[in-house]
Computed example of a mutant assay.
Amino acid sequence: MALHHGDELKHLFENVRVNLDEIYNESKKPFVYDNRRRYAVIVIDMLNDFVLGKLGNERFKSIVPSIRALLDWASEHSIPIIYSNDSHRSTDFELNRWGEHAIRGTWGAEVIEELKPKSRDFIVPKTSYSGFFNTDLDSVLRSIYNGEGANTLILTGLHTDICVRHTAADAFFRGYELIIPYDAVNSFTEAQHLLGLKYLRYAYLADIVSTKQIIKGV
């Protein structure tokens, strides 16, 4: 029996109007590691193909200054910075959804010029939405701070409701607390971005703050 993609989902939701204030309201701030936080900043998919190329969107350029400010702050405070970058082969399953993008070894898979990694930063390639899936990210995080490991992750980059969300899920499953600067992540539309933020707070206890709040002292 063959399975077919139908229009049932479209019909199901065509008359639905979502009020963001009515969903995902219950929230808490991170609290487990309050007195002994060890931070790491993770930059997700701030690549040429995502910002300027095949999947580019004018919205994504707006978060570059905030991420730049966070990276400068992290460097000044000796906080590790990790780049979680799509690095695809032409056979990767995800390409069936998004088409070819961030093919390893190409310009599209490179971090945009404004946010280029420094020699001391970590680069962890990935082939799917989550920065943890089949990667060394968890090992890197647990190796820093002289082997004590990071326990609080500041997630930045793209997209709030896709790669940031799935990376946050895997971080939560592994016992990391999360801080999401709302002006340093984004998605294709404002609705996706806001719904993504609400879900991150509701499901994973992410603290949703501004970049300025982090820099002043989270």
Rank of each mutant, 00 (worst) to 15 (best):
R38W: 05
Y176K: 02
R38P: 02
K61T: 09
V164K: 00
E113Y: 15
K198S: 09
N15W: 03
S139R: 13
K212R: 11
R38T: 04
V209R: 04
K28A: 12
A191T: 06
A74Q: 04
S90V: 13
D136F: 02
Q213C: 07
A150D: 11
L205W: 10
L55K: 07
I215K: 10
G56T: 04
F93D: 14
I154C: 03
I215T: 10
R38I: 06
E94D: 12
Y83G: 11
I144M: 13
L141R: 08
N15Q: 04
R36P: 00
G53L: 12
I154K: 06
D7L: 10
A168M: 05
H88E: 12
H166G: 02
R104G: 13
I144Q: 08
K118F: 08
H4E: 11
Y202Q: 03
V64Q: 10
G147D: 01
M1R: 10
L158N: 01
I154M: 08
A2T: 13
F133T: 14
R165K: 07
K118D: 14
T160L: 03
I82S: 01
M1N: 10
G99N: 14
T167A: 09
T156M: 05
V209F: 06
T127D: 00
G157S: 07
W98N: 07
D183G: 01
G175W: 13
Y83N: 08
Y199G: 08
V32K: 11
L153Y: 04
L95H: 01
E110G: 13
H88I: 12
G217Q: 15
A168T: 00
L200D: 06
A184W: 05
K216C: 10
Q213P: 05
T160W: 00
F188L: 14
N186T: 10
E14F: 05
S119D: 15
E22V: 01
E190N: 11
L95S: 04
A169N: 11
T135W: 01
N57D: 13
R37E: 11
E8G: 00
D138C: 06
E100C: 10
L200N: 01
R59M: 13
I63P: 12
H193K: 07
L158E: 03
K28Y: 09
S119C: 05
N151K: 11
V209I: 13
D121W: 00
A69P: 08
T211P: 15
F31I: 00
D183T: 05
C163M: 04
S143F: 12
G196N: 01
A2C: 03
S139K: 14
V16C: 05
W107Y: 09
I42C: 08
R174K: 15
K116R: 15
F133R: 14
F188R: 11
D34M: 00
K216V: 07
W73F: 15
Y176G: 05
V41N: 04
I112L: 13
L197Q: 03
G108S: 02
V111A: 07
S87F: 02
S210M: 07
F132P: 05
A206R: 09
T152V: 15
P30F: 06
P30Y: 07
S62M: 07
V51G: 03
T135L: 03
F132A: 09
